[in-house]
């Protein structure tokens, strides 16, 4: 029951494909996002959790967040060529062999994931919003209209991914718009534009999913059998919130990245059941009150 709020029949669904296997954790996307969207600084604080990630999490003033997953257990290096198809085949340096020779496999590894609003098909925030500030655009992305939002805060616990939040200084909710203003002018979002390793790909949704599938299969062929898509390509019964507009290629269980293994719009999942239970209980309560009065007065 989504309503695309803007009438523009020729537009297509646009999305992000974030490939975490090529992310180097440079945080250029975070900076580009803050610059383009004129988002305020949060102050750089190194946290006590022994992580080098000082952004912490997505917030009302951080719409892209490169999550650092610092893993302490050593893992064997996968056989990934540094460039092209050859394993040193074209006279290149075999970096994997070189690294193994120098004992690098015993090193801890970091996983990086550039997190962002998922622009869900079944969006919990959009279902919860009582003012209609949250809408779906002609690109099937979900945005907050800052001139409508009155800061009720209901979208905050309604997001199964912990994306949208209320700004404690401004009073309104805010999140990634998939650079709606840039999209309207035919430009790709700021984070994707700035990504130096093409970890963040932007494009028409269907094309992105095809690219992503090819990437997963390529990784499988090279021995990274843990590679999978988070939020796209699933069977209808197993989809995350009915497919995510911004989906990810991950190589570890979703919990490592602070992502739920399954998700659904909470309002769609629990609303009808809870309403039925509530109304039934209320009807029962009213009947019981009427009954108690009738009984007391008959005596």
């Amino acid at each position: 029951m989504t309503e695309i709020a803007i009438d523009r029949p020729e537009s297509r669904r646009m999305g992000f494909f974030t490939d975490t296997t090529v992310c180097i954790g440079c945080k250029a996307c975070e900076v580009a996002c803050k610059q383009w969207n004129d988002l305020p600084a949060d102050g750089a604080v190194f946290r006590k959790t022994s992580s080098y990630d000082h952004t912490g999490s997505l917030s009302a003033s951080t719409w892209r967040h490169v999550r650092f997953v610092e893993q302490t257990e050593p893992v064997p290096l996968p056989d990934l060529p540094a460039y092209g198809g050859g394993n040193g085949g074209h006279g290149e340096v075999d970096l994997v062999a070189a690294a193994e020779a120098h004992g690098v496999p015993q090193m801890d590894r970091w996983l990086f994931m550039s997190d962002v609003c998922k622009h869900c098909t079944n969006a919990g925030c959009l279902d919860a919003c009582p003012t209609g500030a949250l809408i779906r655009t002609e690109f099937e992305t979900v945005i907050v209209q800052p001139d409508v939002c009155n800061g009720c805060g209901y979208c905050v616990p309604s997001c199964p991914f912990g994306v949208i939040n209320r700004d404690p200084y401004d009073g309104r909710a805010a999140k990634c718009t998939l650079c709606y203003d840039r999209l309207e002018d035919g430009l790709e979002p700021a984070c994707a534009k700035s990504c130096p390793t093409d970890s963040i790909l932007f494009g028409p949704y269907d094309e992105l999913v095809e690219t992503a599938k090819g990437r997963v299969l390529a990784l499988h062929e090279r021995g990274v059998t843990d590679a999978y898509l988070y939020g796209a390509g699933d069977e209808p019964g197993e989809q995350l919130a009915g497919e995510l507009g911004a989906f990810f290629l991950l190589t570890a269980p979703p919990e490592r990245f602070g992502l739920p293994a399954q998700a659904e719009s909470p309002a769609q999942e629990n609303g009808p059941v809870a309403t039925a239970a509530g109304l039934a209980a209320a009807a029962l309560g009213l009947a019981a009150a009427v009954g108690a009065f009738a009984r007391a007065h008959r005596r």
């Binding site: 997001c159 999978y228 069977e235 570890a252 979703p254 399954q262």
Partner: peptide, 27 residues
């Protein structure tokens, strides 16, 4: 193959052994 890969990693009803819930998950 894509669906099977995703099912392997996020389809089970158990968090895989040795994986911490590395939050924050929700606000």
């Amino acid at each position: 193959r894509i669906q099977a890969a995703a099912r392997r990693m996020r389809g089970s009803t158990e968090i895989p052994e040795g994986v911490d819930a590395n939050g924050p998950f929700i606000n």
